[in-house]
Design a protein around this nucleic acid. Sequence first.
DNA 1: AATGAATGAGCTTTCATTCAT
DNA 2: CATGAATGAAAGCTCATTCAT
Lengths: 216, 216, 216, 216
Amino acid sequence: MNKNIIEELLEQTRVSKRETEKLSQIDEAAITLFAERGFANTSTKAIATKANVSEGTIFKHYKTKEHLLLSILLKFINVMLPVMKKEIFSKLNAQSFPTFESLMRFFILNRLTFVRKNHDVFKVFVKELIYNDALRADLLKAHSGDITRFFYEQFDHYKESGQIKPIENAILMRRFLKVVLMDFIWVFALSEAYQNLNEEEWISQLIDSYLEGIRA
Amino acid sequence: MNKNIIEELLEQTRVSKRETEKLSQIDEAAITLFAERGFANTSTKAIATKANVSEGTIFKHYKTKEHLLLSILLKFINVMLPVMKKEIFSKLNAQSFPTFESLMRFFILNRLTFVRKNHDVFKVFVKELIYNDALRADLLKAHSGDITRFFYEQFDHYKESGQIKPIENAILMRRFLKVVLMDFIWVFALSEAYQNLNEEEWISQLIDSYLEGIRA
Amino acid sequence: MNKNIIEELLEQTRVSKRETEKLSQIDEAAITLFAERGFANTSTKAIATKANVSEGTIFKHYKTKEHLLLSILLKFINVMLPVMKKEIFSKLNAQSFPTFESLMRFFILNRLTFVRKNHDVFKVFVKELIYNDALRADLLKAHSGDITRFFYEQFDHYKESGQIKPIENAILMRRFLKVVLMDFIWVFALSEAYQNLNEEEWISQLIDSYLEGIRA
Amino acid sequence: MNKNIIEELLEQTRVSKRETEKLSQIDEAAITLFAERGFANTSTKAIATKANVSEGTIFKHYKTKEHLLLSILLKFINVMLPVMKKEIFSKLNAQSFPTFESLMRFFILNRLTFVRKNHDVFKVFVKELIYNDALRADLLKAHSGDITRFFYEQFDHYKESGQIKPIENAILMRRFLKVVLMDFIWVFALSEAYQNLNEEEWISQLIDSYLEGIRA
DNA sequence: AATGAATGAGCTTTCATTCAT
DNA sequence: CATGAATGAAAGCTCATTCAT
């Protein structure tokens, strides 16, 4: 589970890979089971059975069980990040957000929709990234730059316009992750809270707890 | 991994269990390995080898591998919670904290010291609670009441004295967990940040991000 | 791997089998790999990959992996024996060999040239005949008669002319095989000696060790 | 299948390894099956069944199937060579052999007895050494020196006393191997000839074909 | 209390082969 | 003629656990 695999897989993924019927059955079954029991507690046999496919077929598509996991995670990342960027940038270009709060609201709602649609993959993502130290380190190294850059630019913009305190970007970022990401994780990966979530209220509280403190 | 096991084990644990040489070797080895690779990826053989003990011996002390994990986690909880309570209450009785901030500072420093001393168990705790949905549900059910009650009392106290905003306790609590617990998890379980941590500064920032927002 | 297969295959082979591009790629790849790792340790996938052919194609040409092996071996035998006979008989007819030694020299040089050209197939031949008891028995039964007859005739001839001792043909034959065949096997199948072989000297020693003893 | 394994195993073997009932059942079953079908065509399951042992037990004793093979081969070598040396040297010391022929006769009879007792292991030995190029190379490198040295000394001795021709030792050695070893291989590993072997006659012919040529 | 030999179910992966296109 | 997706049996090996000593 080292960078070689990730890179190797990225290429493999890029070079198309015709989405056969069976292949997506495998992916789907794997995602469901990994989300439920975790990667380590899911046997390839269970995946094959759930996917209505022979075990051999799994290994025709993925060299190892680990490759299957990584393929799922990378597909998630490689969709999540570019789409997010595109959507946000097109909005930003059309008409920039007047307040930092409105940007956040848009951003969170946008991610909320995405994660809601992919909430099983998100669960796998969270679980395995926390369980597997090496995997986490690799993915962080590969992708943290991109995200950080985007946020820093926004922070700078709204600091200039005097909407947020002149705090170091790194700190603003960490607070953001704690407050927002943690809640996504809790709501979608660790609890069943997402099932009857009052979205409006949830978002408002999220933003509030980021922008305002609790001090009277 | 259902409630029966936890209860069964609690009793088993209470009914003493003489800490043999071998037994603590097993515990120590298991904690290290579970922290590194996770419970599911650690074989009893690996534990036995690291503990300089035969595999049979592990099963003389713990009925199953799962019992070993639970024993570790419960020992952690059963030490963590009562000691925390005792220490904090004795302080509270001696001289109550004049400000909410001072209470938090004391509380965080107190937990910091504890987690620093037990940081491998803490890592196991975090990883397994996130990985294993059933285990998480069980432990939450069993122990959340205690903690919640303690916090609510404090919140009420400082709301009365006008130090914190009159926000619902549940929300105050959730924000606290997000801001503080998440950071403990990141610093001690997921990154190597704890190795060169400027404690003073870290605590200050933690408190700040709880008490104050980022809005200018 | 019983006689049926051999016979079945012989017919199949006789009934032509147009040498497609792909087919000879398969044969070549199989020979190389069988020589290197042995039949049992070579997967059809490896053959397909090396031959730049899909796995399915192999089975379009050969009913089973075993058929592929046998086809290779029988092609070898069915070329080796008839050509040898033809070449030697034409020589024998043109002008018979004055000495037994000159016959041997011609014979060995002739085979040497042949094996040198086909040394990978020879390696497969040796390895599989030794590894597979049943195959060995079958081929021996099918072909030993021919060869034996030829040799016996020669022995008789040179015994009459007083050039070799009046030893039983069977014994002369066995000694020949031990001394000559064993060396071919060693030189071409088991060592890398064939790569820098002083042919003249090698042949002389071969003959010497057959004709003369070591007793002073 | 590299030297590391061999060395590793040699040590493992030296450090005793208590011969459990089950262990020798495994060894015995493996030898029989490897001799019959070859290493590559024998499954661990087949070994387990024949040995009346669970598959797991095999792997408790041998890290891999390959280790099992090597253990068998090395046990054979490590018994074969030292015992041979001891027996021959004690004879040589007691009263040296008057003729080279008498030495050979003793030597061959001695080996004959040994191989007869261990003829299945011998078969495995021959088959796998021919099938597996790497294994052959390793074992040759490790053990050829010893044997060569012994023979060269004997050759020198009998050349001095004028009993054998002044031929280069290397050549005498190669002829010996061809004539004698090849026959052992044929008789014990490749044919069923050993079953009704007229020992006296066989040995005489072996020696004769080494000492005398066929030239009239 | 501790061992370590033994188990058998289960694991991931590879295999030769089939078949629709 | 050639492909490559699909198969399911079987491979080697690991696993948590038991039990006689």
